[in-house]
Amino acid sequence: MSGARLDLEGIGKSFRGLRAVHDVSFTVPAGAVHALIGPNGAGKTTIFNMIAGVFAPDAGAVRLDGETISGLRPDRICDAGVGRTFQLVKPFRGLSVLENVTVGALHRHRHLGQARDSAAAILSRLGLHDRRHQLAESLTLPDRKRLEVARALATEPKLLLLDEVMAGLRPTEVDVMVQFLRELNQRTGLTILLIEHVMRAVMALAAEIVVVSYGEKIAQGTPHEVTRHQAVLDVYLGEQEMA
C-alpha cells in the first residue's frame, strides 16, 4: 500500500443555482497529509463528494495519479483507491462493528474469513476491538467516527478522505487519533486529505492547509503561513479555533 497524488483542476458544483464550489484547484502529493478547512457551508464536504464520485463536478476534473476519476461511480472511485468517511456518519446500523468493517475489507479480500481477519486487525488498531460484536447502531458518536475511519481503511485506499472525524472527540481522544493517522501515514505512505475544525489536529498533522470560503479557495500554504494569511484571518475573525 502506498499513496496516490490527488489533483483537483478547477472543479465546481452548483445546486439549483446555489454555487457551492467554484473553480477550486489544488494538489495533494503522494504520501502527503493535507487539510481542508473553512467555515460551515464553505463547500468542503461538496469537494469530498466530487472526489468520491457522489456527484460529478459541473466543471473541471479530479485526477488520481494522473488518471481522471471525476464522473466515475463511487464504487469505481473506491476501486481506483479512494476511501472516504462521511461527516454525517453512515454506519451499517443493523450489522456488528466487525461486519461493518468486513464489508470494506471484502473490497480487497474475496473470502469472508480473510476479510474478517483484516477487519479485526484494523479494529484493534483503532481501539474498537472490544466492541466488535456490538451492533453499529449501539455505538457512541466518537466510536461511530472511528468506525467510519476503520471501514474506509479496510478498502486499502491510496487516498483517504476524512470528513471531520475528530468532531466530538475529547482532547485526549483527538491525540490518539492524530497519533494513529500520523503513524498510518508514515508506515504506509497513504495520502490523507482531512476536513477538520479541530485545529489542534490540523496543526499536528497537515503539511499544508487549503482554506475555502463561500465555495472558493482563498488560501493555501503551511500551517504557519495560513494562520498569518489576512484573508484567512478575516474569515475566522472572532472565531476561537485559529487562536
Partner: peptide, 25 residues
Amino acid sequence: ESRLGRYWLAIREDAEAAQAVGVPV
C-alpha cells in the same frame, strides 16, 4: 456467508455507504 450476501446486507443498511466502500450497488 458470501461476499455477495454481505454486500446485500450493506446495501440494505445504507446503499450510499456501501457504494463508498466499493459495492457495485
